[in-house]
């Protein structure tokens, strides 16, 4: 058979699924490893039967039902990743089982909403994308140094970043103008790297003027609106 490690792993899924099926047939409510094995097994066998990716996903979603599960299991059956062999090759299927079971092991309960404290020194800037492709900017990027094809009052954004949730981003579609809010960068306000326009302490005397001059020389201001 020349089975690879990955193929041998299929047999572990099969073994557990066989056990889970026998237990389910006796009317036993399923726990987490049992339920995961049945979902995985259903996806793999649907692929083996020549079904499509969408059909295999559906097979995984319907492999079990809430009334076959122990309390609290349903919520743990999100993001079940299975690699199955389809007719066009090996494919990844990720099954997010939907449950109506209110019990959730490890549940986080927040009774009071968190609020992001307002930051001082915020400015609003209109940004136009002159390029043919979409440009996206993430939260903490030094806005002064973003893609030169974005046209805006660049000097006004010196030492600023987007005032959105950390890890988020703003999309600037081609040819469109988007207004964003920016806030000052905090900490020691030292910017190293990026486009090399600053490469030092933001607030050092003459630094801003030098950065604007570099920006102009390197073409960052040529498309300024």
């Amino acid at each position: 058979m020349e089975l690879t490690p990955s193929e041998q792993d299929r047999l572990l899924i099969f073994n557990v699924a066989q056990l889970a099926q026998a237990r389910r047939a006796r009317g036993v409510k399923l726990n987490k490893p049992e339920a995961v094995s049945l979902i995985s097994h259903a996806v793999i066998e649907a692929a083996r039967d020549g079904n499509t990716h969408a059909q295999a996903l559906q097979a995984g979603l319907t492999a079990i039902s809430d009334n076959e599960l122990l309390p609290g299991i349903g919520s743990m059956l999100r993001g079940i990743a299975v690699e199955a062999v389809f007719d066009d090759g090996r494919r990844l299927v990720v099954v997010d089982y939907e449950t109506s079971d209110p019990q959730v092991p490890g549940q986080v309960t927040r009774l009071e909403p968190i609020s992001q404290p307002a930051k001082s020194g915020a400015v609003m800037i209109s940004v136009h994308n002159n390029s043919m492709i979409q440009i996206s900017v993430t939260t903490h990027m030094h806005f002064f140094e973003v893609n030169p094809h974005l046209s805006f009052d660049r000097p006004a954004t010196y030492g600023m970043h987007l005032d959105i949730k950390a890890g988020g981003h703003v999309d600037f579609p081609s040819g469109e103008t988007v207004t964003v809010q920016l806030v000052p960068i905090t900490g020691d306000r030292v910017l190293i790297g990026f486009a090399g326009l600053v490469d030092g302490p933001l607030d050092e005397p003459g630094m801003k003027e030098r950065a604007i001059e570099r920006a102009r020389t390197l073409g960052y201001l040529s498309e300024q609106s």
Partner: peptide, 27 residues
């Protein structure tokens, strides 16, 4: 301030402190 249930136990803890700054969480 959030409440976290540990596994499927009856134990629930409340987070006492968070060293992150809201808005500056690194990921």
């Amino acid at each position: 301030g959030d409440f976290v249930r540990l596994g499927d136990t009856a134990l629930v803890v409340r987070v006492e402190a968070d060293d992150r700054e809201i808005g500056n969480e690194v990921q």
